[in-house]
């Protein structure tokens, strides 16, 4: 089974759970919540520096899901619907804050992104190196422009295609593809640079 069809099956299950919840089965909601709480929480936490605000928006998203449960229609996939609510809340609350885009100023479309350092997975320090690079990635994600960050997180967390992300964010397909591509390139660059800086310090 391909990843796309896996997502479709999961969405069918989600829709079923949502309908069960709407009919009064709150255990269905618990299942739904447990399945999506981590990715949705990280969607907010990774995009917003303020953890309290991120948690408020996270709770508000679920609040809206609960409120709309009785009138929920299976026209859109549950995950698409869920993240569209989250996206709209994020836009409403965060757009005015204008996140720091220092990293985006350093990155342009023409830049070559083949700057990754080779990793030696067979060395005894491989796991530690991976952990270090993972933490560097986390710091680099924070530096991404908001729109790229959102596209990257939706892509990597939920495995959403560019088309689905475009639907959630309400932008064109090509623009979404560019955002994902630039985000990947920028993150590779960023991790590589920071890794190099750390090696130089040693």
């Amino acid at each position: 089974m391909t990843k796309v069809s896996e997502i479709e099956v999961v969405d069918d299950i989600d829709q079923t759970l949502m309908h069960q919840y709407a009919q009064g089965d709150h255990s269905a909601f618990e299942q739904l919540y447990l399945k999506h709480k981590g990715p949705l929480y990280r969607y907010f936490v990774r995009q917003i520096g303020d953890k309290t605000l991120a948690e408020d928006l996270y709770q508000e998203t679920w609040g809206r899901v609960i409120k709309a449960a009785t009138s929920y229609q299976s026209q859109a996939k549950f995950t698409t619907w869920l993240y569209r609510i989250a996206h709209n809340l994020l836009v409403d609350h965060v757009r005015a804050l204008k996140p720091v885009d220092n990293f985006s100023e350093l990155f342009t479309e023409e830049q070559d992104s083949d700057g990754l350092l080779p990793s030696d997975k067979h060395s005894p320090y491989a796991d530690a190196e991976e952990q270090l690079k993972a933490s560097l990635l986390k710091r680099c994600i924070v530096l991404l422009p908001q729109v790229q960050k959102e596209a990257f997180l939706l892509n990597i967390e939920m495995g959403f295609t560019a088309a689905v992300i475009a639907e959630i964010a309400g932008v064109g397909l090509e623009a979404t593809k560019s955002r994902i591509r630039y985000a990947n390139q920028a993150l590779r660059e960023c991790v590589s640079e920071k890794w190099q800086e750390q090696n130089d310090e040693r």
Binding site: A134, L137, I141, N155, I180, N184, L187
Partner: peptide
């Protein structure tokens, strides 16, 4: 358009 496997691996370690 997906993230490359290295980024994916690193992300999962911190997610």
């Amino acid at each position: 358009e997906s993230v490359d496997s290295q980024l994916h691996t690193w992300y999962r370690l911190q997610a």
